[in-house]
Design a protein around this nucleic acid. Sequence first.
DNA 1: TTGTACGCGTTATCAA
DNA 2: TTGATAACGCGTACAA
Lengths: 330, 330
Amino acid sequence: MTMTDVATRAGVSAQTVSRVLRQPELVGDEVSRRVREAILELQYVPNFAASQMASNRSGIVAAIIPTISASIFADTVQALSDVFVPEGYQLLLGNNEYDLEKEEELVRSFLGRGPDGLVLSSTHHTEATRALILGAKIPVVETWDWEETYLDLMVGHSNVKAARVVMDHFVSRGYRRIVFAGVTNAGDFRAKARLTGYRAAVKALELDRERVLTLTGKPLSMASGAETMNRVFAEFPDADAVFFSSDVFAAGALLHCVRLGVSVPGDIAIAGFGDFDFSAHLVPSLTTVSVHAGDIGRTAANLLLARMRGEAVASSRIDVGFELVPRESS
Amino acid sequence: MTMTDVATRAGVSAQTVSRVLRQPELVGDEVSRRVREAILELQYVPNFAASQMASNRSGIVAAIIPTISASIFADTVQALSDVFVPEGYQLLLGNNEYDLEKEEELVRSFLGRGPDGLVLSSTHHTEATRALILGAKIPVVETWDWEETYLDLMVGHSNVKAARVVMDHFVSRGYRRIVFAGVTNAGDFRAKARLTGYRAAVKALELDRERVLTLTGKPLSMASGAETMNRVFAEFPDADAVFFSSDVFAAGALLHCVRLGVSVPGDIAIAGFGDFDFSAHLVPSLTTVSVHAGDIGRTAANLLLARMRGEAVASSRIDVGFELVPRESS
DNA sequence: TTGTACGCGTTATCAA
DNA sequence: TTGATAACGCGTACAA
């Protein structure tokens, strides 16, 4: 079923059918009615590929996140979808598994689809990725980071500062022998930024010394958190607090302590990152940093939308901030 | 940059460039080298819309899930991506928010893109949706359900049976005054199937009587679980066990009990559904049903892939099963 | 092994 | 307010 079939059925030209669908105000009432009828009768479905060929607009927004499953990024994707779908855009989704080479492959493949906009979930890319995107001349928003240089638009927050706020909190409650425990997957620059923030805080606050426990190749799971807690006990027996790079690890560690009968925060304080749903409900409840994953998605989508429409944007860089959520675990 | 630009640069015809990209074995070594060089120099990115027009293949797989954020469906999407992306397909994602009308809109919009395959996450659709899909004549796989009638392919498990298995487990441990607590959003047919399984079990096992607590309009959150637990105490003070329709509710309820000092399973037993990461780590650990979200995605993707390639499939309906995971909470 | 002609379904442009 | 025509970039079919 093509537009021509509908046109024949309605006794008009294909161009008129196109107008009914895209600029109905330019078409007469009677003709418009006949066309709509024909569309329904023939179950006509517009061919977007042809539309894209002719108009050079795809109606697609492509988004790349580090990982889809069990992640806070799913909330961002949900928000992207919530904004873009009502505006008539479709969402092409990919995950780079924290691997910049994979991201490059994805970007290359997505650009072939001629997306009207692109959402990336970090400011770290290969040079080739950067070149590809700049060559495509489409609006891009980089999210979940906060850097001085970015391609086009940026929405996120500073992980370095967030880590500092957690450290300030620990110190204000009297903890000074603080461990940082997190993953250091090559591509997880946010976790690295938190580690940077931790290190800076140890110096600035004149804490005892750095105590860093980095996991490599461990999945983001509560089991990894429990395992890490055991390593904290073994390697830093004098520690009085642990800052985990994710609530998932922190919760695994906290529940492990509960099971062992280790008092939190009596024997050791714990803080996480992300403010997952479970964090408020744990007993003891988990101190963490809330990061507004949905806000990042919504803000990024609206900013991108403005760019895609050629509207001026007040600021090309928006800090959605974060919030320390002090709870019982510290 | 078009294929013709690359051809001119390499001193060949556009068709040869196309061959280098799609059937390199048919092209001579020297010509092939020149073409590849030109592609790199010009930063050529193939136009998939044009490719789709000419070949009638889009390289797109469209997937619709109930909700993206904080859900077990994200694991299914991850698995879909893991299978399809290496095969050269791109993933178009949408969420229907458990609303069949929204699903219809999404299907209509996705079909305009000419996807080579479609993944749905239930067997419940409007009649118009069904007609649209059948009219499109593309492979479809319906997931997360188990029904006698389906459109083309089906991958899932029986929620009715899963509920029965939980009930059998409760009874085998001596519980007989069992509450079912779950959401009844209009479009959540899986939760409804679990309720059906519960009701059938109450009859078959000759239990005391039905005790059903249905939440409407509550988000899938631990807070809702805690709230529900209070309602159980108020409305069914004699209950000795609660079967929640999701681990999220169950965990919220369990942690609420821990906080109140209500012994689980001493005072009341709890079981959930889904085997989320946190379920094994809670203290007490949560009895649940493991449902293999990743398996559903992988299996569905491979089945759809076979259909898309025109290969014969051994079975058009695959039961990935489920597993009772008895833990400390019951 | 390489090249030519044609058509896919739509929209932009211009004319009526 | 409506229609005719050309063009988008590529793959298929066929020819050389």
